[in-house]
Amino acid sequence: NTKMVRFKKGDSVGLRLAGGNDVGIFVAGIQEGTSAEQEGLQEGDQILKVNTQDFRGLVREDAVLYLLEIPKGEMVTILAQSRADVYRDILACGR
């Protein structure tokens, strides 16, 4: 149940992230009207890879910085997997 989305970065990627470290990086929110939303990313999706950067094992701050450093107008390719069950557990633990 993995999906790959590809879009051109606007002012931002339009994602709020949660998790990090051993639990993985998850989409915690999506800005309305962004390409990330239009391409089908959803809250609870685990981000496995962005462009050439493996997101598994990253701390959340490093994942956020990586997304911020992608220049506006560059193509962004995100490999994600729907993991809403794991995401709910992360929220319940306050991570």
Rank of each mutant, 00 (worst) to 15 (best):
V23I: 12
G14N: 04
G20T: 10
R95G: 13
C93D: 14
Q81W: 00
N51Y: 04
L65S: 15
R60Q: 15
D54W: 01
A84H: 14
D62H: 12
L58I: 14
R56T: 13
F7Q: 07
L91H: 11
V59K: 15
T34G: 14
E43I: 14
I25F: 05
F55Q: 03
V76M: 02
L68V: 11
K72C: 06
K49P: 00
D11P: 00
F7I: 03
Y66S: 05
D85V: 08
Q42Y: 02
V23G: 14
D85L: 07
G33W: 01
V64M: 15
E74W: 04
A18E: 14
A18P: 05
K3Q: 00
E32V: 08
G40A: 05
I30P: 06
G40Q: 11
G10W: 00
E32H: 12
I78F: 00
L65A: 15
E74R: 04
E69M: 05
G19A: 05
G29D: 08
R95F: 15
A63N: 09
A18H: 10
A80T: 07
S82C: 06
A84E: 13
D89A: 09
D85Q: 11
R88L: 10
G57S: 10
G33M: 08
Y66N: 08
P71S: 05
G57C: 09
K72W: 02
L68R: 15
Q53C: 12
K49R: 13
V23R: 10
D22P: 09
E39M: 14
N21E: 15
A18G: 07
L67T: 05
S12L: 07
F26D: 00
G10K: 10
L17W: 01
T77G: 02
R88S: 11
R6N: 07
E43G: 03
R16L: 10
L17Y: 01
I70G: 02
L58M: 15
R88N: 13
E61K: 08
K8H: 06
F55V: 07
A92N: 14
V27Y: 01
N51P: 02
Q53G: 01
F55P: 08
T34W: 08
G57D: 10
F26Y: 10
I30H: 01
G94P: 12
A80D: 02
S82N: 13
M75V: 11
N1K: 10
F26P: 01
R88Y: 11
G20Y: 04
E32P: 15
D89G: 12
S35N: 14
Q42W: 01
S12I: 08
Q38H: 14
M75K: 05
S12Y: 11
T2I: 15
R60W: 13
G24E: 05
C93R: 13
R56F: 04
L91V: 14
A18C: 13
R60I: 15
D11L: 03
N1I: 14
D22M: 02
G10F: 03
E61F: 02
D45T: 01
L58W: 06
G19K: 05
V76K: 01
L41C: 03
L48E: 02
R88W: 11
V86E: 13
T52L: 04
I25P: 06
T52G: 15
D85I: 08
S82T: 10
A28D: 13
V5M: 01
V27S: 03
V59D: 15
R60T: 14
D62S: 11
E37F: 13
L68Q: 15
K9E: 07
E43S: 05
T77Q: 09
G19F: 05
D89N: 14
V59M: 15
Y66G: 05
Q31G: 11
G94K: 11
Q42K: 13
R16T: 15
A18T: 12
M75F: 08
E74H: 09
L67H: 02
D45R: 01
G29L: 01
G73A: 03
D62Y: 00
I47N: 00
L91Y: 08
L48H: 00
V64S: 12
V13T: 10
L41W: 03
I30F: 13
R6V: 10
D62C: 01
D11T: 07
N1C: 12
E39Y: 14
N21H: 14
S35L: 12
G14Q: 06
F55H: 00
K9F: 04
R16P: 04
R95H: 11
I70A: 03
G20H: 05
A63T: 03
A36I: 10
G33L: 03
T2G: 01
A28P: 07
V13L: 15
L68W: 09
I90R: 13
Q38E: 13
G29K: 11
I90W: 15
C93G: 15
P71E: 07
G19M: 02
I25Y: 00
P71T: 02
D89Y: 06
I78R: 00
A84T: 13
C93A: 14
I25C: 08
G20M: 02
L41Q: 04
G19P: 05
V86S: 12
G33R: 02
R83W: 02
A80V: 11
D22N: 08
F26M: 04
E39Q: 14
T2C: 12
M75L: 09
I47M: 00
C93I: 12
L15K: 03
Q31W: 07
V50A: 03
V76G: 00
T2S: 06
I78A: 07
D22Q: 10
M4H: 08
V23C: 09
V5R: 02
I25R: 04
L68P: 06
A92C: 13
S12F: 11
S82K: 11
G73H: 10
Y87D: 10
I47Q: 09
A92D: 12
L91R: 11
F7V: 06
G14W: 01
E69P: 05
Y66T: 06
K8T: 11
S82Q: 09
V86Y: 12
L91I: 14
N1V: 10
E37S: 12
A80G: 05
I25K: 01
G40K: 06
G44V: 03
V76D: 04
G24R: 02
Q81A: 11
E39R: 08
I70K: 07
T34C: 15
E37Q: 12
I70Q: 04
G73N: 06
E37H: 14
Q31H: 09
K3F: 09
F55T: 09
R60P: 15
D85E: 12
T77C: 10
T34L: 08
D54G: 02
K9S: 01
V27F: 00
V27D: 10
Q42C: 12
F55C: 02
G94T: 13
D54K: 00
V23D: 02
Q53Y: 02
A84W: 14
A36C: 09
Q31N: 11
V86Q: 10
I70S: 01
I90D: 13
Q46P: 03
Q53H: 06
F55D: 02
D45C: 02
D54Q: 03
V76I: 12
S82R: 11
E37R: 08
D11G: 06
A18D: 05
R83H: 09
E37T: 07
P71R: 05
G29E: 12
L68H: 15
A36H: 09
I47K: 01
G40D: 08
E43V: 15
V86I: 11
P71C: 01
A92S: 13
L41R: 02
E69R: 14
P71F: 00
Y66M: 01
I70H: 00
M4D: 07
M4A: 08
G19H: 06
L68S: 15
Q46T: 07
N21S: 15
Q38K: 14
S35G: 13
R6I: 09
K49N: 08
E37A: 14
V86T: 11
D54V: 05
V5P: 03
I78V: 08
I70E: 03
N21G: 15
A92V: 10
I78S: 01
L58T: 01
G73W: 06
V13N: 02
E61G: 04
C93N: 15
M4E: 12
I70Y: 00
E61H: 05
G29Q: 09
T77P: 02
I47V: 05
G24Y: 00
R83K: 12
L65F: 05
D62P: 04
K8Q: 13
A92F: 14
E74N: 09
D45F: 02
D11E: 13
M4T: 13
E37M: 11
K49M: 12
